[in-house]
């Protein structure tokens, strides 16, 4: 169930991260995704400062961040902006937000595959992701790539398996520590 208030601490973290933003706009000017974002990075940080959590999470903005780190590099206040974008994605994932489900599913399936095998199983990841999008068009979009990689013998099916279960302890421990805070 979608619940944007499930992790109130995380939004506070983002607020702290951008607290000293002076709205200079350097981040927006450096962001290659700004033109497709509903709110530019500078605007997102303003909304975050004002506590407009729903506005931020429901907008198509942070989801376009490609982690290029230009904004982080150039921000005159030295703010960790790429990490703040990632934290917004984390909030979206943890609140099972429907709006960004297909993007977040990719990250979730990635992490699941890692948890299961210790290493990423690319075939399993793409299969699960494409099934989850329930969109035959998306699957078809990737079909030529899949065929290309398959033809080259590049898709790894098996070698990730040797780590099976090896990360169970780490994942459990991380979860335990997160639940505590």
């Amino acid at each position: 169930m979608e619940d944007l208030n499930k992790t109130p601490g995380l939004f506070k973290d983002v607020q702290e991260m951008v607290q000293s933003c002076i709205q200079c706009g350097t981040c927006s000017g450096s962001c290659l995704a700004a033109s497709v974002m509903e709110h530019t990075p500078r605007h997102i940080w303003r909304l975050v400062q004002l506590g407009c959590k729903e506005d931020v999470l429901n907008s198509k903005s942070f989801i376009y961040c490609a982690s290029c780190y230009y904004c982080t590099l150039r921000c005159p206040r030295g703010l960790p902006l790429t990490e703040a974008m990632a934290k917004l994605k984390e909030i979206s994932a943890k609140s099972s937000q429907k709006k960004h489900k297909s993007s977040m599913d990719f990250y979730k399936y990635f992490v699941k595959s890692v948890c299961r095998h210790g290493r990423v199983n690319e075939v399993e990841l793409m299969t699960n992701y494409l099934i989850s999008t329930k969109n035959p068009v998306t699957s078809l979009k990737y079909a030529p790539l899949g065929m290309k990689l398959m033809g080259k013998g590049k898709l790894s099916f098996g070698n990730a398996l040797k780590g099976n279960g090896v990360l169970d302890v780490l994942f459990a421990k991380v979860k335990e520590m997160e639940d505590r805070t």
């Binding site: 984390e90 994932a93 990250y107």
Partner: peptide, 15 residues
């Protein structure tokens, strides 16, 4: 084992 790539950060910072 896997380093988490660029996906783990979007799911859990601590992870």
């Amino acid at each position: 084992t896997c380093c988490g790539a660029s996906a783990a950060e979007s799911v859990s910072y601590l992870l």
